[in-house]
Amino acid sequence: MTPEENKELVRRDPEEIWSEGNVDVVDEIYAEDFVLHDPSSPDGTRGREEYREYVAAYRDAFPDADYAVEELVAEGDAVAMRYTARGTHEGELMGIEPTGEEVTVTGMELYHVDDGKITEMWTNYDALGVFRQLGVVPSADELAEQEDD
């Protein structure tokens, strides 16, 4: 596949799987032995079924999730993506009960594509910012105020 075709394949992940919630697309665009590297999931995610479960956990927590692809860059089999995601915290996330808070998060991902399928992804997003927006981690200003008390 060309770099442009790889970009269009990768774009389907945030748009169809994450924003639309169409997890059937996982079988179309991910290799069976796909590996996800995510610092918030230290054990890693391997295979299509685990990726569907990973997506479901976040979509259950943020059922109105909407991802905007800000930029895609491709070279060879690699595609880099910068995105902004928004959603309302309406379900449990990592043991955090729903807060009803609207959250905006930015992130970047690096994908590898082989024979028309995504084989590997590294993701890094502002998890600390999400926890701050949910009110479970104090901001630097709030910490400074606590020290002054």
Rank of each mutant, 00 (worst) to 15 (best):
T2V: 03
T2G: 09
E8S: 09
R11H: 10
R11N: 06
R12I: 04
P14V: 00
W18V: 02
W18Q: 05
W18F: 11
S19Q: 12
E20V: 04
V23F: 10
V23H: 06
D24E: 14
V26N: 00
D27I: 04
D27H: 12
E28G: 06
I29N: 04
I29G: 05
Y30L: 14
E32Y: 10
D33K: 12
V35S: 08
P39V: 06
P39M: 08
S40T: 15
S41F: 11
S41R: 13
D43C: 06
G44I: 06
R46Q: 14
R48Q: 15
E49H: 10
E49F: 05
E50S: 11
E50F: 04
E50L: 01
A56V: 07
A56S: 14
A56E: 14
Y58Q: 11
D60L: 07
P63Q: 14
D64R: 11
A65K: 05
D66F: 05
D66Q: 14
D66N: 15
Y67L: 06
Y67C: 03
E70Y: 03
E70K: 10
E71M: 04
V73W: 04
A74G: 04
G76D: 11
V79F: 02
A80I: 03
M81T: 00
R82S: 07
R82F: 04
Y83E: 02
Y83I: 00
Y83R: 01
R86F: 02
G87M: 05
G87K: 01
T88F: 06
T88L: 07
E90R: 15
E92Q: 13
E92D: 15
I96V: 15
E97H: 09
P98N: 11
P98Y: 05
G100M: 07
E101N: 15
V103T: 01
V103D: 01
T106L: 01
G107Y: 03
E109D: 14
E109T: 05
H112Y: 12
H112F: 12
H112V: 02
D115S: 15
I118Q: 02
M121Q: 07
N124I: 09
D126Y: 07
A127E: 12
A127D: 11
R132E: 14
G135T: 12
P138F: 09
S139R: 07
E142V: 09
E142S: 15
L143G: 12
L143T: 10
E145L: 12
E147M: 14
E147D: 13
D148C: 04
D148N: 11
